[in-house]
Structure formats: structure tokens, C-alpha cells
Amino acid sequence: MGQTLSVRKLEAWYGPNKTLKGINMEIEANHVTAIIGPSGCGKSTFVRCINRMHETLPGTKVIGEIILDGESIYDQDPVALRKTVGMVFQKPNPFPSMSIFENVVAGVRLNGQRNKQNLQAIAERSLRMAALWDEVKDRLNYSGISLSGGQQQRLCIARALAVEPEILLMDEPASALDPIATTHIEELIRQLRDNYTILIVTHNMQQAARIADSTAFFLNGELVEHGATSEIFTNPKDKRTEDYITGRFG
């Protein structure tokens, strides 16, 4: 089951530039939360803080707290944290030299799982959850990059699910995909919600409206408004949110 995340007074820098300015936010378990906002508003930085990727870049700094399962993520080993917090990126990035099967179990293997039967079971379960099993079950030994863009992205989701995370971060997971592949990913996100807490960064307003239970609007490193998606897209409280979602700025 997914976990609740509590973000408290989160601030982040790239060198001298403060990209997050005191974010306070509760992210509900087993919900899809969409993060929207114009380019440079800090939304990608925000999700990269949640799996502690932001701090891996030189010159970056983070202060504040992110509480997961009652414990600050900054008190946890980053590698262990990333087992709990999976991430899917904008561009599908299967390992090019690996087969479909090897791609899915790559993370599990790194975590020490060597038993072949277990790995096969994990691969099948993950590919089924990513709604890809039926399409690839007869060619698991083919290269991961032999798949279409939409299939590659679902392969990356399967790879993230294989390590049994509780939180799934998605940074514009469908922006490089055609409408049919996008529909597959969106349906998948809706299904995964039952077992995971999902945060999705998207520039596509309609996508946020379609799939997210709650939506957070970021602007200039600040969280302007966070509420039920139905409210944000029908009656936002802040004029800046209204101006953004109606396309009048940004």
C-alpha cells in the first residue's frame, strides 16, 4: 500500500538560485497527485527532492523535512529510500544493452535478488501491473529498445514497480508519447493508484484533470494552491491558479 508524505518547509537551491521556497504539503496515500505549473516553477525539483536525487547534483542544497512513514527521508539511506520511492522520467530510458526481462529485474538484482524463479515471478508481476505483459510475454529476451515509445515507458514503469516501491514519482511520463500510448499510461496510473502513492509532474492540464485526485499548482518556487482536482479545475481559490489553468499566463 502507498504511504502518506508530509512535506514541511522544504527549500531547495541550485547554486545561488532558490528554486523551492518553503513548501508545506500533505500528499495522501493511494492518491494520484498532479504537480502543475509553468516551466521553472520548481515542480521537477520538488519531486527530485522526494527521492533525494536533487542533492546528488553539485552546488545544490535542501533544507526542510519530508516525512515518509513517520520518519524523515533525510534520516534514511538514499539508496534504501529509492527502493521505497520509485521514479519514472519524461523520456523512456530502458537500459539499451539489456533485454526486456533484464530491464525489469535490473533494480531487484542490484538489491541482491538472484533466484531465477523469483526474478521471473517478479518480472511477470511487474509487467502485468504495467499492462505490458500480454504484449511482450513471448519476446522477453528481445532488447528493451526494440519496443515502441509507449511500451518502453511502460517497461520503465514495470522496472520501477519491480522493487516494490510505495511512492511512484513520474516526471512528465507521457509527454514524449502519442495519444494512444498516453491513454495507456493514464489508464495504468489510475489502476496503480490502489497500491501506490503517485506524484505526477505534468504540463498537460487535461491530463492532470483526467487522472489526478488532487492537484498542486506551483509558481516561482511556491505552492500556490493544492486541492481536489475537481475543485482546482472548476473553482480555484487563487487567481494565479485560475490564470494558469485557463491559459492566461505561463
Binding site: M205, Q206, A209, F233, T234, N235, P236, E242, I245, T246
Partner: peptide
């Protein structure tokens, strides 16, 4: 694809 006040 209007939303919020535009949609109303």
C-alpha cells in the same frame, strides 16, 4: 478545452 470560469 476550457476550465474553471471559462467553462462555466
Amino acid at each position: 478545452q476550457p476550465v474553471a470560469k471559462d467553462l462555466r
